[in-house]
Amino acid sequence: MASRVFVTGRISRWRSVFFIILAWAFIVQFKANLIGLTGRAFVTQDIQEVPYCHIAIASSFLNHVYQQYLALMSGAWQAWSPLTWGALWLGITLVLGQAWCSWACFYGGLDTGFARLRRKPLIKWERVPKALRDLPAGILVAMLLLSLVALKPIFCLWACPLKLGTGFLDPNNTTRIIQLGMFATVGVVFLIVLPWLTKKRAFCGLICPFGAWQAFFGQVNPYRVHIKPEACVQCQLCVKACPTFCIDQEGLKQHQVSPYCNRCGECMDACPTGAIDYAVGWRKPFALAPGVARIAFLLSAWLVAGAVSLLFVPEVLLKLWRWVFSWFA
């Protein structure tokens, strides 16, 4: 797939294929592990800990800081494991920045999959009202504060669709029914229906707190998406193509891309004049030979995303293959 991107020059098609496989493989692996652990695919009581992912960690980051403070003070070295996760995240952020959200995140792969089901959107949706443009960041701030006060990961407990099949900390039945309702609503609306109707990645573009987190910390990463003013004819095809609302009419006039951009490459594939491309440089793009920034970015992205996928994709594909084979044998 990586070679197809280099050969065809079209980034998003092959990235999407890889990304969707990665996401579904993650779900299968997650469920398989759950069955291995508990003997069931849908568990509500046996697992008493919230399984952590990058979204939960980011949105309850202050809790981790607090726990690390307590661990340091009490000399409980075992409680230092979040620091390992922190180091891993730092490495990925330095190499990939926000591109994590379009290359290696399972939620991104899920809404990309549903957004790609239609050739054309049934409902056109090109801009988000100004007041809502920073909704992911608003959700992140609210989650950070609420999680710290409650000493629980609030996003994880109230909004994560993946939780539909896992355990809860809260044994109260009414609470659990409300939680299940929230998970299902968020999942169905933002991961399935809106992406399918509009071809926009509604979960990543509108509500994911990790997207906002990476948009902020990802600024340390030097890769950017840059619109060359001299080549842009203001046709607005990129506005239509961007699945996460990162280019809008106003921004386009100033040739600006939103900091939430997660380097998916859809706009580059849509641009008829080749005005948009990857660039290297924090404030202004460095003057590099044509194509160098693109190759550097794509190599970094495939390296990190490939490494992440190696953790579970081959194993899942092998399991599926064996399973299919056993049907015919």
Binding site: A137, G138, V141, L145, L146
Partner: peptide, 17 residues
């Protein structure tokens, strides 16, 4: 201004919660 917008949105969410 961007932080002000973020603050207002998080105020809605915190208030609602």
């Amino acid at each position: 201004p961007r932080f002000q917008r973020i603050g207002t949105l998080s105020a809605v969410l915190v208030g609602g919660y």
